[in-house]
Design a protein around this nucleic acid. Structure first.
Lengths: 190, 190
DNA sequence: GTCTATAGCCGGATAGAC
DNA sequence: GTCTATCCGGCTATAGAC
């Protein structure tokens, strides 16, 4: 229950979050996290039972961050169309990281699809959150096929991310993000 | 130059191809390939200098297979629209593998984007082949933005693959493939 | 060409001093 | 709570017998 321990726990999660994104889950070792934080390897087991537990904590904080992100869209405007455009704009700010490492959610889910089912299911949770939020935005605009549209939007974002990262093409990424916003407008206007 | 050795070399490549797809490159060990082929681990170094060399050979055979695939589309019809639809149909036949392990090209490229640049560049080559072939199909139909359309088609395919694998949803995958064929028709008719 | 044995390193996880 | 030392196993790669 000490405050000191919780601070270290948070630092481990933040370093693991970044490394899982930039290097992948399986390619990140305890030594890597130790180097990034200055916390000795053996100490990790005071905060987490296994490496899988670190992944669970990382995904939980990603979900918390995404919740803050969509809540800030909710606070900004009552127009669901503007919320979706605002959400897309937020993603555009991560374009340099996307070119280098892909989508944090998509690449982790793709990696862990080849691993144990429990890890894969955990990695899918951020997608579930986003699908439900986007769905509720389309619903509030009176669109009947809101869930299909939510999957379409996520698929568009994932598709351009995979190709932009594969070809290391930031201009393609920018152009495609504009087309996605055009698509949002087309689906939600009138 | 013996014929026996070349047979073993081919068996190693085929087993590695399947394992790199189902488990990932970094998660596939020489022991895994040995178990799958019955060829002892130490023997691999007679055929390949390093594990990276096996990856290079695997990607080369994937490129050869894709070349056969697009050539069979070229042979079947002189209508580029029909060729693109035929290509999409061929991808649909791999839907069960896609749900389990994603796209062989996309998931490998996403994984190796977080690895050494040389491996990532090699893994991108199948995408280059497909982009150029799709581009030439759109060009032969007189479309001026053929390269953009080729990237759009590949992005659509990658996007639905990532989401279908993430959610393990084969019905979504089928529906989305039909929508992609509708899009091809929309872009290429009249 | 084929196979065994093993080097040398690094991984996750543990024990126990402080 | 913090840190060191270490176990045990798996990894790529090599050496060398046959």
């Amino acid at each position: 229950m000490g405050t000191k321990g919780e601070g270290n726990r948070q630092r481990i999660i933040e370093a693991a979050d970044s490394l899982f994104y930039r290097r992948g889950y399986n390619q990140t070792s305890f030594q890597d996290i130790s180097d990034a934080t200055g916390i000795p390897r053996g100490n990790f087991y005071y905060y987490f039972k296994t490496k899988d537990d670190i992944l669970n904590a990382v995904v939980d904080t990603r979900i918390a961050d995404l919740t803050l992100m969509v809540n800030s869209c909710e606070s900004a405007t009552s127009d669901a169309r503007e919320r979706l455009l605002m959400f897309s704009n937020m993603l555009e700010h991560q374009q340099d990281d996307v070119i280098q490492s892909g989508c944090p959610i998509g690449s982790l889910t793709t990696e862990l699809a080849k691993d144990e089912p429990a890890l894969h299911e955990k990695s899918r949770q951020p997608f579930v959150l986003l699908r439900n939020w986007i769905k509720s935005q389309f619903e509030s605009l009176g669109l009947s096929n809101a869930e299909d549209l939510a999957m379409d939007l996520l698929a568009k974002l994932q598709g351009v991310t995979v190709m932009a990262c594969a070809f290391k093409d930031v201009e393609y990424l920018k152009r495609s993000h504009h087309e996605i916003k055009d698509w949002i407008n087309k689906k939600t206007l009138n």
